[in-house]
Write a protein that binds this DNA or RNA. Structure first.
Length: 117
DNA sequence: CGCATGACGTGAG
DNA sequence: GCTCACGCCATGC
């Protein structure tokens, strides 16, 4: 653990997403220092999905469940979000701006330390 | 080694 | 305000 791999970074941040909250790939990527590599976050999650990473809480900038197709089923991601109280309609998170959780917003508390510049 | 693809984001029209 | 097109970084062929 605490690996410097981009993989582990995404794993940590995603794992720290509060219940009933969601975030975007770009937010994580930017927090990791790679705002131009949002795609790498998605790719990392693709490998992290084998772990206990709540990837269903990670959506794209528009709040669309773009990754739901990559889950086991087709509506599994939506079911998980709804199970947490997150309303989802047509593969989109309702009140996305309200449920949006920024890693640099709570993780900055200091309890959770990730590679800092 | 070069081309094509991808769970995205930003810029320009 | 919305849509089209390009760019990033890494993996696969």
């Amino acid at each position: 653990m605490a690996e410097d791999n981009f993989f582990c970074k995404v794993y940590k941040v995603t794992a720290q997403i509060p219940y009933g909250m969601v975030t975007s790939y770009g937010a994580i990527a930017k927090f990791l220092g790679a705002p131009r590599s949002a795609r790498m976050v998605g790719w990392a999650l693709n490998s992290c999905d084998k772990e206990n990473v709540p990837a269903h809480r990670v959506v794209n900038r528009n709040g669309l469940l773009t990754g739901k197709h990559h889950f086991l089923g087709t509506n599994l991601m939506q079911q998980l979000l709804e199970s947490e109280g997150v309303e989802v309609t047509e593969n989109r998170v309702k009140n996305f701006e309200q449920l949006f959780w920024d890693p640099s917003r709570e993780l900055l508390d200091g309890t959770f330390t990730i590679e800092g510049p």
